[in-house]
Design a protein around this nucleic acid. Structure first.
Length: 483
RNA sequence: GGCCCCGUGGUCAAGCGGUUAAGACAUCGCCCUUUCACGGCGGUAACUCGGGUCCGAAUCCCGACGGGGUCACCA
Protein backbone atom coordinates (compact mmCIF):
# COMPACT_ATOMS: atom_id res chain seq x y z
CA UNK A 1 0.00 0.00 0.00
CA UNK A 2 1.41 3.34 -1.05
CA UNK A 3 1.01 5.95 1.66
CA UNK A 4 2.32 9.48 1.37
CA UNK A 5 1.95 12.41 3.67
CA UNK A 6 2.12 16.14 3.64
CA UNK A 7 3.44 17.35 6.97
CA UNK A 8 3.44 21.13 7.24
CA UNK A 9 4.05 23.04 10.41
CA UNK A 10 1.39 25.60 11.29
CA UNK A 11 3.76 28.50 11.60
CA UNK A 12 2.65 30.73 8.80
CA UNK A 13 0.85 30.53 5.52
CA UNK A 14 0.93 28.06 2.71
CA UNK A 15 3.41 29.08 0.12
CA UNK A 16 3.64 27.79 -3.39
CA UNK A 17 6.67 25.57 -2.84
CA UNK A 18 4.86 23.76 -0.06
CA UNK A 19 1.74 23.46 -2.15
CA UNK A 20 3.71 21.82 -4.91
CA UNK A 21 5.13 19.31 -2.46
CA UNK A 22 1.61 18.53 -1.26
CA UNK A 23 0.44 18.21 -4.85
CA UNK A 24 3.13 15.70 -5.78
CA UNK A 25 2.53 13.69 -2.61
CA UNK A 26 -1.18 13.65 -3.39
CA UNK A 27 -0.99 12.66 -7.05
CA UNK A 28 1.71 10.10 -6.40
CA UNK A 29 -0.46 8.37 -3.81
CA UNK A 30 -3.59 8.57 -5.95
CA UNK A 31 -1.83 7.42 -9.07
CA UNK A 32 -0.84 4.28 -7.22
CA UNK A 33 -4.13 3.65 -5.51
CA UNK A 34 -2.64 4.72 -2.22
CA UNK A 35 -3.60 7.09 0.54
CA UNK A 36 -2.64 10.68 1.18
CA UNK A 37 -2.21 11.68 4.81
CA UNK A 38 -2.15 15.12 6.36
CA UNK A 39 -0.12 15.53 9.52
CA UNK A 40 0.44 18.76 11.39
CA UNK A 41 3.93 19.16 12.79
CA UNK A 42 3.65 21.52 15.68
CA UNK A 43 6.37 20.33 18.00
CA UNK A 44 7.75 23.83 18.23
CA UNK A 45 5.36 25.36 20.71
CA UNK A 46 6.93 28.78 20.43
CA UNK A 47 6.22 29.13 16.76
CA UNK A 48 2.60 28.15 16.87
CA UNK A 49 0.44 30.55 14.90
CA UNK A 50 -3.25 30.76 15.57
CA UNK A 51 -5.34 29.95 12.55
CA UNK A 52 -2.48 28.57 10.51
CA UNK A 53 -3.97 25.10 10.52
CA UNK A 54 -7.16 26.39 8.96
CA UNK A 55 -5.14 28.02 6.19
CA UNK A 56 -3.58 24.66 5.45
CA UNK A 57 -6.98 22.98 5.32
CA UNK A 58 -8.49 25.67 3.13
CA UNK A 59 -5.63 25.73 0.71
CA UNK A 60 -5.48 21.99 0.25
CA UNK A 61 -9.25 21.65 -0.11
CA UNK A 62 -9.39 24.67 -2.39
CA UNK A 63 -7.05 22.84 -4.71
CA UNK A 64 -8.86 19.54 -4.51
CA UNK A 65 -6.09 17.85 -2.56
CA UNK A 66 -8.35 15.96 -0.18
CA UNK A 67 -6.58 13.85 2.41
CA UNK A 68 -7.66 10.37 3.40
CA UNK A 69 -6.48 10.70 6.97
CA UNK A 70 -5.86 13.82 8.95
CA UNK A 71 -6.50 15.80 12.12
CA UNK A 72 -10.06 16.77 11.26
CA UNK A 73 -11.21 13.50 9.72
CA UNK A 74 -9.24 11.00 11.73
CA UNK A 75 -7.89 7.69 10.52
CA UNK A 76 -6.38 4.51 11.88
CA UNK A 77 -3.05 6.04 12.78
CA UNK A 78 -4.03 9.12 14.73
CA UNK A 79 -3.74 11.49 16.29
CA UNK A 80 -2.48 13.46 13.31
CA UNK A 81 -1.21 16.44 15.21
CA UNK A 82 2.23 15.91 16.64
CA UNK A 83 1.71 17.79 19.86
CA UNK A 84 -1.10 15.36 20.66
CA UNK A 85 1.28 12.47 20.12
CA UNK A 86 3.77 13.72 22.67
CA UNK A 87 3.67 10.64 24.89
CA UNK A 88 4.37 8.31 21.99
CA UNK A 89 7.92 9.37 21.40
CA UNK A 90 9.66 8.97 24.71
CA UNK A 91 9.42 5.15 24.82
CA UNK A 92 11.21 4.92 21.50
CA UNK A 93 13.89 7.30 22.71
CA UNK A 94 14.34 5.09 25.76
CA UNK A 95 14.57 2.05 23.57
CA UNK A 96 17.43 3.76 21.76
CA UNK A 97 19.11 4.51 25.05
CA UNK A 98 18.85 0.83 25.98
CA UNK A 99 20.49 -0.22 22.75
CA UNK A 100 23.19 2.38 23.09
CA UNK A 101 22.02 4.40 20.11
CA UNK A 102 21.02 7.36 22.22
CA UNK A 103 21.94 8.86 25.58
CA UNK A 104 20.86 11.38 28.16
CA UNK A 105 22.60 14.71 27.88
CA UNK A 106 22.58 17.17 30.74
CA UNK A 107 24.54 19.91 29.04
CA UNK A 108 22.48 23.07 28.97
CA UNK A 109 21.60 24.75 25.74
CA UNK A 110 23.65 27.78 26.73
CA UNK A 111 26.75 25.68 27.32
CA UNK A 112 26.45 23.95 24.01
CA UNK A 113 25.68 27.17 22.20
CA UNK A 114 28.73 28.74 23.71
CA UNK A 115 30.95 25.91 22.57
CA UNK A 116 29.37 26.03 19.16
CA UNK A 117 30.06 29.71 18.90
CA UNK A 118 33.66 29.24 19.96
CA UNK A 119 34.14 26.50 17.41
CA UNK A 120 32.69 28.66 14.69
CA UNK A 121 35.00 31.47 15.59
CA UNK A 122 37.89 29.11 15.14
CA UNK A 123 36.47 28.31 11.74
CA UNK A 124 35.60 24.80 12.75
CA UNK A 125 32.44 22.81 12.25
CA UNK A 126 30.88 22.22 15.62
CA UNK A 127 29.87 18.79 16.70
CA UNK A 128 28.63 17.88 20.11
CA UNK A 129 31.54 16.07 21.74
CA UNK A 130 29.50 13.23 23.27
CA UNK A 131 30.49 14.55 26.67
CA UNK A 132 27.48 13.06 28.45
CA UNK A 133 27.92 9.72 26.74
CA UNK A 134 30.68 8.94 29.21
CA UNK A 135 28.50 9.43 32.26
CA UNK A 136 28.08 6.31 34.35
CA UNK A 137 24.72 4.78 35.01
CA UNK A 138 24.89 5.98 38.59
CA UNK A 139 25.76 9.53 37.63
CA UNK A 140 22.86 9.61 35.20
CA UNK A 141 20.42 8.21 37.72
CA UNK A 142 21.57 10.70 40.31
CA UNK A 143 20.97 13.64 37.97
CA UNK A 144 17.64 12.24 36.91
CA UNK A 145 16.61 11.80 40.54
CA UNK A 146 17.75 15.32 41.31
CA UNK A 147 15.55 16.56 38.52
CA UNK A 148 18.34 17.98 36.42
CA UNK A 149 16.88 18.97 33.05
CA UNK A 150 18.04 16.83 30.18
CA UNK A 151 17.65 16.11 26.50
CA UNK A 152 18.11 12.80 24.75
CA UNK A 153 20.67 12.71 22.00
CA UNK A 154 21.27 10.35 19.16
CA UNK A 155 24.56 8.50 19.39
CA UNK A 156 25.73 8.83 15.80
CA UNK A 157 28.62 6.80 14.44
CA UNK A 158 31.80 8.72 13.75
CA UNK A 159 33.41 6.51 11.16
CA UNK A 160 32.42 4.99 7.88
CA UNK A 161 29.82 6.35 5.51
CA UNK A 162 26.11 6.04 4.90
CA UNK A 163 24.45 5.61 1.53
CA UNK A 164 20.78 5.77 0.75
CA UNK A 165 18.74 5.84 -2.39
CA UNK A 166 16.53 8.67 -3.46
CA UNK A 167 14.06 8.12 -6.27
CA UNK A 168 14.93 11.38 -7.98
CA UNK A 169 18.51 11.99 -6.92
CA UNK A 170 19.85 8.46 -6.96
CA UNK A 171 22.37 7.24 -4.43
CA UNK A 172 23.47 9.77 -1.86
CA UNK A 173 26.57 8.95 0.15
CA UNK A 174 27.62 10.89 3.21
CA UNK A 175 30.64 10.39 5.46
CA UNK A 176 29.51 9.60 9.01
CA UNK A 177 32.07 11.78 10.73
CA UNK A 178 30.11 14.91 9.89
CA UNK A 179 27.02 13.61 11.63
CA UNK A 180 26.22 15.50 14.81
CA UNK A 181 24.51 13.89 17.76
CA UNK A 182 21.16 15.48 17.20
CA UNK A 183 18.68 16.04 19.96
CA UNK A 184 15.80 13.58 19.85
CA UNK A 185 13.80 14.70 22.86
CA UNK A 186 13.93 18.33 23.86
CA UNK A 187 14.12 19.61 27.38
CA UNK A 188 10.39 20.33 27.34
CA UNK A 189 9.75 16.68 26.64
CA UNK A 190 8.71 17.30 23.06
CA UNK A 191 10.45 15.38 20.34
CA UNK A 192 12.40 17.38 17.81
CA UNK A 193 11.16 17.40 14.26
CA UNK A 194 13.97 15.03 13.38
CA UNK A 195 12.79 12.37 15.75
CA UNK A 196 9.05 12.88 15.55
CA UNK A 197 9.26 12.64 11.81
CA UNK A 198 10.93 9.28 11.84
CA UNK A 199 8.63 7.85 14.49
CA UNK A 200 5.48 9.20 12.89
CA UNK A 201 6.37 8.18 9.38
CA UNK A 202 6.97 4.68 10.62
CA UNK A 203 3.91 4.48 12.84
CA UNK A 204 1.73 5.91 10.10
CA UNK A 205 3.21 3.42 7.67
CA UNK A 206 4.33 6.05 5.23
CA UNK A 207 5.82 4.23 2.27
CA UNK A 208 7.14 7.21 0.36
CA UNK A 209 8.52 10.31 1.99
CA UNK A 210 8.08 13.24 -0.37
CA UNK A 211 9.63 16.52 0.73
CA UNK A 212 12.02 19.27 -0.29
CA UNK A 213 15.75 18.90 -0.84
CA UNK A 214 16.49 20.76 2.36
CA UNK A 215 16.20 17.31 3.95
CA UNK A 216 18.53 15.60 1.53
CA UNK A 217 21.54 15.96 3.78
CA UNK A 218 19.83 15.12 7.06
CA UNK A 219 18.23 11.97 5.72
CA UNK A 220 21.28 9.79 6.56
CA UNK A 221 20.71 10.67 10.22
CA UNK A 222 17.08 9.63 9.99
CA UNK A 223 18.06 6.38 8.32
CA UNK A 224 20.38 5.60 11.19
CA UNK A 225 17.43 6.01 13.53
CA UNK A 226 15.25 3.71 11.45
CA UNK A 227 17.95 1.08 11.55
CA UNK A 228 18.57 1.43 15.28
CA UNK A 229 14.87 1.03 15.91
CA UNK A 230 14.76 -1.98 13.62
CA UNK A 231 12.39 -0.33 11.16
CA UNK A 232 12.26 -0.37 7.39
CA UNK A 233 13.51 2.77 5.71
CA UNK A 234 10.87 4.37 3.49
CA UNK A 235 11.38 5.31 -0.14
CA UNK A 236 12.51 8.89 -0.58
CA UNK A 237 11.45 11.41 -3.17
CA UNK A 238 13.19 14.71 -2.60
CA UNK A 239 11.98 17.67 -4.59
CA UNK A 240 14.18 20.51 -5.83
CA UNK A 241 13.27 23.95 -4.53
CA UNK A 242 11.01 26.43 -6.27
CA UNK A 243 13.06 29.56 -6.71
CA UNK A 244 12.10 33.20 -6.95
CA UNK A 245 15.20 33.83 -9.02
CA UNK A 246 18.64 32.36 -9.53
CA UNK A 247 19.65 33.06 -5.96
CA UNK A 248 16.57 33.00 -3.79
CA UNK A 249 14.08 30.38 -2.90
CA UNK A 250 10.48 31.37 -3.21
CA UNK A 251 9.81 32.03 0.43
CA UNK A 252 7.25 33.24 2.85
CA UNK A 253 9.23 36.40 3.12
CA UNK A 254 8.46 37.38 -0.43
CA UNK A 255 4.86 37.92 0.49
CA UNK A 256 3.70 37.14 -2.99
CA UNK A 257 4.47 33.49 -2.52
CA UNK A 258 1.29 32.72 -0.64
CA UNK A 259 -1.38 30.71 -2.29
CA UNK A 260 -4.06 32.95 -0.80
CA UNK A 261 -2.47 36.06 -2.30
CA UNK A 262 -2.64 34.61 -5.76
CA UNK A 263 -6.23 33.59 -5.31
CA UNK A 264 -7.28 36.99 -4.05
CA UNK A 265 -5.61 38.62 -7.02
CA UNK A 266 -7.68 36.53 -9.34
CA UNK A 267 -5.66 33.45 -10.13
CA UNK A 268 -7.68 30.25 -10.35
CA UNK A 269 -6.58 27.33 -8.14
CA UNK A 270 -6.81 25.03 -11.17
CA UNK A 271 -4.35 27.21 -13.07
CA UNK A 272 -2.03 27.39 -10.10
CA UNK A 273 -2.08 23.62 -9.70
CA UNK A 274 -1.52 23.05 -13.39
CA UNK A 275 1.40 25.44 -13.46
CA UNK A 276 2.93 24.10 -10.26
CA UNK A 277 2.67 20.53 -11.51
CA UNK A 278 4.77 21.42 -14.52
CA UNK A 279 7.32 23.32 -12.48
CA UNK A 280 9.84 20.59 -11.89
CA UNK A 281 8.02 17.77 -13.57
CA UNK A 282 7.10 16.93 -17.14
CA UNK A 283 4.75 14.29 -18.48
CA UNK A 284 7.12 13.06 -21.16
CA UNK A 285 4.94 14.35 -23.95
CA UNK A 286 3.77 17.71 -25.24
CA UNK A 287 0.70 18.10 -23.11
CA UNK A 288 0.40 21.21 -21.00
CA UNK A 289 -3.13 21.23 -19.68
CA UNK A 290 -4.00 18.89 -16.88
CA UNK A 291 -6.85 18.55 -14.49
CA UNK A 292 -6.01 17.02 -11.13
CA UNK A 293 -7.20 13.60 -12.24
CA UNK A 294 -5.30 13.81 -15.51
CA UNK A 295 -2.26 14.66 -13.46
CA UNK A 296 -2.81 11.49 -11.47
CA UNK A 297 -2.80 9.39 -14.60
CA UNK A 298 0.20 11.07 -16.15
CA UNK A 299 2.39 11.42 -13.10
CA UNK A 300 5.63 9.54 -12.85
CA UNK A 301 8.59 10.01 -10.56
CA UNK A 302 10.83 9.65 -13.61
CA UNK A 303 9.52 12.95 -14.91
CA UNK A 304 10.64 14.86 -11.83
CA UNK A 305 13.52 17.16 -12.53
CA UNK A 306 16.30 17.46 -10.00
CA UNK A 307 17.44 20.99 -10.69
CA UNK A 308 15.91 24.01 -8.96
CA UNK A 309 13.14 25.68 -10.96
CA UNK A 310 12.54 29.40 -11.10
CA UNK A 311 8.94 30.41 -10.59
CA UNK A 312 7.76 32.29 -13.68
CA UNK A 313 4.68 34.35 -13.02
CA UNK A 314 4.39 35.11 -16.72
CA UNK A 315 3.74 31.51 -17.54
CA UNK A 316 1.40 31.13 -14.58
CA UNK A 317 -0.52 34.13 -15.91
CA UNK A 318 -0.77 32.51 -19.31
CA UNK A 319 -2.19 29.37 -17.74
CA UNK A 320 -4.63 31.48 -15.78
CA UNK A 321 -5.66 33.29 -18.95
CA UNK A 322 -6.30 29.97 -20.67
CA UNK A 323 -8.30 28.66 -17.73
CA UNK A 324 -10.40 31.81 -17.56
CA UNK A 325 -11.23 31.48 -21.25
CA UNK A 326 -12.44 27.95 -20.64
CA UNK A 327 -14.70 28.96 -17.76
CA UNK A 328 -18.43 28.52 -18.43
CA UNK A 329 -19.74 31.98 -19.24
CA UNK A 330 -22.01 32.18 -16.22
CA UNK A 331 -19.14 31.33 -13.95
CA UNK A 332 -16.98 33.99 -15.53
CA UNK A 333 -19.75 36.56 -15.17
CA UNK A 334 -20.16 35.68 -11.53
CA UNK A 335 -16.48 35.90 -10.80
CA UNK A 336 -15.84 39.02 -12.84
CA UNK A 337 -18.79 41.04 -11.59
CA UNK A 338 -17.18 42.22 -8.33
CA UNK A 339 -14.18 43.39 -10.32
CA UNK A 340 -16.40 45.20 -12.82
CA UNK A 341 -18.27 46.88 -10.01
CA UNK A 342 -15.07 47.97 -8.42
CA UNK A 343 -14.44 50.28 -11.35
CA UNK A 344 -17.94 50.89 -12.61
CA UNK A 345 -20.22 50.88 -9.61
CA UNK A 346 -23.45 48.96 -9.71
CA UNK A 347 -26.20 48.87 -12.26
CA UNK A 348 -24.87 51.34 -14.78
CA UNK A 349 -23.73 48.98 -17.48
CA UNK A 350 -24.73 45.84 -19.30
CA UNK A 351 -22.36 43.60 -17.41
CA UNK A 352 -23.39 40.54 -19.33
CA UNK A 353 -22.32 42.05 -22.63
CA UNK A 354 -19.20 43.45 -21.03
CA UNK A 355 -18.35 40.02 -19.70
CA UNK A 356 -18.72 38.49 -23.14
CA UNK A 357 -16.18 40.94 -24.44
CA UNK A 358 -13.89 40.60 -21.46
CA UNK A 359 -13.70 36.88 -20.93
CA UNK A 360 -11.18 36.18 -23.67
CA UNK A 361 -9.13 39.18 -22.58
CA UNK A 362 -8.86 38.51 -18.87
CA UNK A 363 -5.46 37.27 -17.79
CA UNK A 364 -5.98 37.83 -14.09
CA UNK A 365 -9.15 39.15 -12.51
CA UNK A 366 -7.46 42.00 -10.71
CA UNK A 367 -6.57 43.55 -14.05
CA UNK A 368 -10.22 44.05 -14.93
CA UNK A 369 -10.84 47.41 -13.21
CA UNK A 370 -8.12 49.20 -15.15
CA UNK A 371 -9.39 47.73 -18.37
CA UNK A 372 -12.98 48.86 -17.99
CA UNK A 373 -12.78 52.04 -15.96
CA UNK A 374 -12.96 54.19 -19.10
CA UNK A 375 -16.58 53.17 -19.52
CA UNK A 376 -17.56 55.06 -16.39
CA UNK A 377 -15.10 57.83 -16.69
CA UNK A 378 -13.69 59.30 -19.88
CA UNK A 379 -9.93 59.40 -19.48
CA UNK A 380 -7.66 62.17 -20.65
CA UNK A 381 -5.84 61.17 -23.79
CA UNK A 382 -3.32 62.66 -26.20
CA UNK A 383 -4.19 63.44 -29.82
CA UNK A 384 -1.47 61.01 -30.87
CA UNK A 385 -3.93 58.23 -30.21
CA UNK A 386 -5.75 59.30 -33.37
CA UNK A 387 -2.66 58.43 -35.34
CA UNK A 388 -2.74 54.93 -36.74
CA UNK A 389 -0.65 54.24 -39.78
CA UNK A 390 -2.50 51.22 -40.96
CA UNK A 391 -5.88 52.88 -40.59
CA UNK A 392 -4.40 55.95 -42.18
CA UNK A 393 -5.71 58.23 -39.53
CA UNK A 394 -4.45 61.32 -37.73
CA UNK A 395 -6.18 64.16 -35.89
CA UNK A 396 -7.27 65.85 -39.13
CA UNK A 397 -8.78 62.70 -40.59
CA UNK A 398 -10.32 61.99 -37.23
CA UNK A 399 -12.07 65.34 -37.10
CA UNK A 400 -13.41 64.97 -40.62
CA UNK A 401 -14.75 61.48 -40.01
CA UNK A 402 -16.11 62.22 -36.59
CA UNK A 403 -18.07 65.07 -38.10
CA UNK A 404 -19.29 62.68 -40.77
CA UNK A 405 -20.77 60.18 -38.34
CA UNK A 406 -21.91 62.47 -35.57
CA UNK A 407 -25.27 63.32 -37.14
CA UNK A 408 -25.74 59.72 -38.15
CA UNK A 409 -25.20 58.59 -34.59
CA UNK A 410 -27.58 61.23 -33.40
CA UNK A 411 -30.28 59.86 -35.64
CA UNK A 412 -30.15 56.34 -34.26
CA UNK A 413 -33.02 55.69 -31.92
CA UNK A 414 -32.69 51.96 -31.41
CA UNK A 415 -29.30 51.92 -29.63
CA UNK A 416 -28.08 48.39 -30.13
CA UNK A 417 -24.81 47.15 -31.51
CA UNK A 418 -26.52 45.76 -34.57
CA UNK A 419 -28.36 48.95 -35.37
CA UNK A 420 -25.35 51.12 -34.78
CA UNK A 421 -23.31 48.86 -37.00
CA UNK A 422 -25.90 48.65 -39.75
CA UNK A 423 -26.42 52.37 -39.75
CA UNK A 424 -22.80 53.48 -39.72
CA UNK A 425 -21.27 51.01 -42.16
CA UNK A 426 -23.25 52.15 -45.22
CA UNK A 427 -22.39 55.76 -44.46
CA UNK A 428 -18.70 54.90 -44.49
CA UNK A 429 -19.07 53.04 -47.74
CA UNK A 430 -21.03 55.85 -49.40
CA UNK A 431 -18.41 58.36 -48.38
CA UNK A 432 -15.84 56.13 -50.03
CA UNK A 433 -13.79 55.77 -46.85
CA UNK A 434 -11.99 52.86 -45.31
CA UNK A 435 -13.73 51.30 -42.32
CA UNK A 436 -10.72 51.76 -40.11
CA UNK A 437 -10.33 55.41 -41.02
CA UNK A 438 -13.68 56.12 -39.44
CA UNK A 439 -13.98 53.49 -36.78
CA UNK A 440 -10.54 53.96 -35.28
CA UNK A 441 -11.13 57.65 -34.50
CA UNK A 442 -14.61 56.89 -33.27
CA UNK A 443 -13.32 54.31 -30.83
CA UNK A 444 -10.60 56.62 -29.62
CA UNK A 445 -13.00 59.51 -29.25
CA UNK A 446 -15.40 57.59 -27.06
CA UNK A 447 -12.89 55.53 -25.09
CA UNK A 448 -9.74 57.57 -24.89
CA UNK A 449 -7.76 54.37 -24.86
CA UNK A 450 -5.52 52.65 -27.33
CA UNK A 451 -6.73 49.24 -26.28
CA UNK A 452 -10.28 48.49 -25.34
CA UNK A 453 -12.32 45.33 -24.81
CA UNK A 454 -14.18 45.61 -28.06
CA UNK A 455 -14.51 47.95 -31.02
CA UNK A 456 -16.29 51.26 -31.54
CA UNK A 457 -19.77 49.75 -31.80
CA UNK A 458 -19.48 47.64 -28.69
CA UNK A 459 -18.23 50.55 -26.68
CA UNK A 460 -20.84 52.92 -28.02
CA UNK A 461 -23.49 50.43 -27.05
CA UNK A 462 -22.05 49.91 -23.58
CA UNK A 463 -21.78 53.56 -22.62
CA UNK A 464 -25.15 54.41 -24.18
CA UNK A 465 -26.25 56.97 -26.68
CA UNK A 466 -26.11 60.04 -24.47
CA UNK A 467 -22.59 59.38 -23.33
CA UNK A 468 -21.51 58.48 -26.85
CA UNK A 469 -22.78 61.81 -28.15
CA UNK A 470 -21.25 63.71 -25.27
CA UNK A 471 -17.87 62.16 -25.86
CA UNK A 472 -18.07 62.59 -29.61
CA UNK A 473 -18.99 66.25 -29.25
CA UNK A 474 -16.16 66.82 -26.81
CA UNK A 475 -13.69 65.14 -29.14
CA UNK A 476 -14.82 67.21 -32.11
CA UNK A 477 -14.70 70.40 -30.11
CA UNK A 478 -11.20 69.71 -29.01
CA UNK A 479 -9.97 68.85 -32.47
CA UNK A 480 -11.59 71.99 -33.89
CA UNK A 481 -9.96 74.17 -31.30
CA UNK A 482 -6.57 72.89 -32.27
CA UNK A 483 -6.86 73.51 -35.97
C1' G B 1 34.51 26.66 5.50
C1' G B 2 33.16 20.91 5.70
C1' C B 3 29.61 17.77 3.47
C1' C B 4 25.62 16.93 -0.18
C1' C B 5 23.05 18.24 -4.65
C1' C B 6 22.56 20.81 -9.34
C1' G B 7 24.36 23.22 -14.29
C1' U B 8 20.49 22.92 -22.27
C1' G B 9 17.72 29.85 -24.93
C1' G B 10 15.26 35.27 -20.39
C1' U B 11 11.89 31.13 -17.90
C1' C B 12 9.91 25.93 -17.83
C1' A B 13 11.78 21.91 -20.46
C1' A B 14 12.74 17.38 -24.30
C1' G B 15 17.19 14.89 -25.05
C1' C B 16 20.00 8.91 -22.19
C1' G B 17 26.74 8.18 -27.65
C1' G B 18 25.44 9.89 -34.22
C1' U B 19 19.14 15.09 -34.00
C1' U B 20 18.99 20.74 -38.90
C1' A B 21 19.48 20.46 -30.24
C1' A B 22 12.10 19.47 -29.71
C1' G B 23 7.99 22.06 -27.53
C1' A B 24 5.68 25.87 -24.24
C1' C B 25 5.82 30.96 -21.93
C1' A B 26 8.02 35.59 -22.92
C1' U B 27 9.92 38.59 -26.96
C1' C B 28 10.10 40.40 -32.23
C1' G B 29 7.95 40.55 -37.28
C1' C B 30 4.03 39.46 -40.83
C1' C B 31 -1.17 38.07 -42.06
C1' C B 32 -6.31 38.43 -40.52
C1' U B 33 -9.19 42.31 -38.18
C1' U B 34 -13.21 48.60 -36.72
C1' U B 35 -8.56 48.45 -31.63
C1' C B 36 -6.70 44.94 -28.39
C1' A B 37 -7.26 39.98 -27.99
C1' C B 38 -8.10 35.30 -30.38
C1' G B 39 -6.30 32.66 -34.65
C1' G B 40 -2.51 31.68 -38.56
C1' C B 41 2.63 32.06 -40.32
C1' G B 42 7.64 33.17 -39.35
C1' G B 43 12.12 35.13 -36.62
C1' U B 44 15.80 36.08 -32.51
C1' A B 45 17.67 33.04 -28.66
C1' A B 46 20.81 27.53 -25.33
C1' C B 47 24.23 22.68 -24.33
C1' U B 48 29.17 27.10 -18.14
C1' C B 49 34.44 26.21 -19.17
C1' G B 50 38.77 22.94 -19.65
C1' G B 51 40.69 18.23 -20.11
C1' G B 52 39.93 13.22 -21.27
C1' U B 53 37.26 8.30 -23.30
C1' C B 54 35.37 7.31 -28.22
C1' C B 55 35.40 6.98 -35.30
C1' G B 56 31.82 10.27 -32.98
C1' A B 57 29.89 13.70 -26.70
C1' A B 58 24.72 18.21 -24.64
C1' U B 59 24.74 12.95 -23.47
C1' C B 60 30.20 8.92 -20.22
C1' C B 61 34.71 10.22 -16.76
C1' C B 62 37.83 13.95 -14.21
C1' G B 63 38.72 18.94 -12.86
C1' A B 64 37.56 24.04 -12.59
C1' C B 65 33.85 27.65 -12.27
C1' G B 66 28.97 28.99 -11.07
C1' G B 67 24.46 28.17 -8.26
C1' G B 68 21.57 25.90 -4.37
C1' G B 69 21.02 23.14 0.18
C1' U B 70 22.78 21.74 4.97
C1' C B 71 25.71 21.95 9.31
C1' A B 72 19.72 24.20 15.98
C1' C B 73 16.64 21.78 22.21
C1' C B 74 13.22 25.29 13.79
C1' A B 75 10.56 22.39 10.95
Amino acid sequence: MIRTRFAPSPTGFMHLGGLRTALYAYIFAKKNGGRFILRIEDTDQERYVEGATKVIYDTLRGCGLDWDEGPDIGGDFGPYIQSERKSLYLPYAKQLIESGDAYYCFCTKDEVDERRKAAEERGEVFKYDKHCLSLTKEEIQAKLDAGVPYVIRHNAPTTGETTYHDLVYGDITTPNDILDDMVLIKQDGMPTYNFANVVDDHLMQISHVIRGTEYLSSTPKYNLLYKALGWDIPEYIHLPPVMRDQHHKLSKRDGDAYFSDFVSRGYLPEALINYLALLGWNPGDEREFFTLSELQDAFSVKGINNAPAIFDIGKLTWFNFEYIRRLPFDKYLEMATPWFEKALGKGRFDLKRLAELMQIRTEVFDRIPDMVRFLAEMPEFPDELYVNKKMKTNPEVALENLQLIKPVLEGISDWTETTIHDTIMPVIAEAGKKNGAVLWPMRIAISGKENTPGGAFEIAYLIGKDETMRRTDAAIARLVSKQ
